[in-house]
């Protein structure tokens, strides 16, 4: 069976002055039955990429295959087999939830029973409410329901949980997981690290139009060399007031079990495989160098750490140049 999605050297330049190179050579390969995430900051090119895959935008160049088919030849066949939710759609406010789903259902040859879907997304008590009267979370769930109503093999979701409270997010996650558990494929975009980590089998980290890392969340974190992060602040004991010397990154990298070190400005962060080995050595070394420890925390490494390592800036920085 063909792959769910296959993308080679995808490029998209928006005509503008100067032209915007939103996607600058992306390769993707999504297998059937997996939940694949595009993780990246604002403006990374996630929406542009996913809309090309959905057949809504024309690529400037590159090669796209969806379920083994191509948009230029088999557009209608692809549309019968995919379900999508856009980053923003305002469905008709005057229609009820049930009417909206019936409308979308009528576009597909085969599909699911709208009422059953409403129940599955726990929207039963809102079935006859107007869309305009739904909460943000309920609207998002309705958007996902519209994507599911054609009983697709492949689901595209562009930032499905943005702006939702934690409970609504978890509810949507479980809907997506159920879909994936029935051996069907999901491609979603997100800028939430925890969403990518919890929900996705594999994640592609996208930054400025390129995929800068792509693997399972576990493998990405493992690539840091250590699954733990030690963060600490150290002040110069000899300096009188103000800012003084700081421990050099080289000195930190020389410590046992430390595989990475970076300066976050205020604090230093070390990637560590075995904290119980690294911490005593760190304390001794700081004392030797004449530093006083001001604070120390340890935590599990996250995709954020991976992102910072590969992108060179934090995920929350929409304008990467600020830090560089």
């Amino acid at each position: 069976m063909s792959d769910a999605i296959r993308v080679r050297d995808l490029r998209k330049t928006y005509p503008a002055s100067p032209p915007v190179e939103a996607v600058r050579g992306i390769d993707l390969h999504v297998e059937r039955g997996e939940c694949f995430g595009l993780l990246g900051p604002n403006g990374a090119g996630k929406t542009t990429t996913i809309e090309i895959l959905e057949g809504l935008l024309d690529a400037t160049s590159g090669d796209v295959e969806i379920l083994g088919l191509r948009w230029d030849r088999d557009g209608d066949a692809i549309r019968q087999r995919i379900g999508i939710s856009l980053q923003e759609t305002r469905l008709s406010e005057k229609l009820t939830l049930r009417e909206t789903l019936r409308l979308f259902r009528s576009f597909y040859r085969q599909g699911r029973d709208p009422d059953q879907l409403i129940a599955q997304l726990s929207l039963g008590d809102k079935a006859d409410a107007r869309v305009g009267k739904l909460s943000g979370g309920q609207k998002q769930r309705l958007a996902v329901a519209c994507a599911l109503v054609g009983d697709p093999e492949l689901l595209f979701l562009d930032e499905p949980t943005t702006g939702l409270d934690p409970r609504s997010r978890r509810e949507l996650w479980s809907v997506i997981q159920q879909f994936r558990d029935s051996r069907r494929t999901v491609l979603l975009t997100t800028h939430y690290l925890d969403e990518a980590e919890r929900l996705c089998d594999r994640v592609a980290i996208v930054d400025r139009g390129r995929v800068i890392a792509c693997d399972t969340p576990r493998a990405l974190i493992a690539s840091l060399g250590g699954e733990h992060v030690i963060e600490f602040q150290a002040s110069d004991r000899l300096a009188t007031g103000g800012a003084g010397r700081r421990p050099t990154l080289d000195a930190m990298l020389a410590l046992p079990s430390v595989t990475g070190a970076r300066d976050d400005g205020e604090r230093l962060a070390l990637s560590v495989a075995e904290p119980h080995v690294a911490i005593p050595a760190l304390l001794a070394r700081l004392a030797d160098l004449g530093f006083q420890l001001a604070g120390l925390t340890t935590r599990h490494a996250s995709l954020e750490d991976v992102f910072i390592k590969v992108a060179g800036h934090a995920l929350s920085d929409a304008e990467p140049s600020v830090r560089e």
Partner: peptide
């Protein structure tokens, strides 16, 4: 404007 046309375009309608 509501992107509803775009949403419809992505279906086999």
């Amino acid at each position: 404007i509501r992107k509803l046309l775009k949403r419809f375009l992505a279906t086999p309608m």
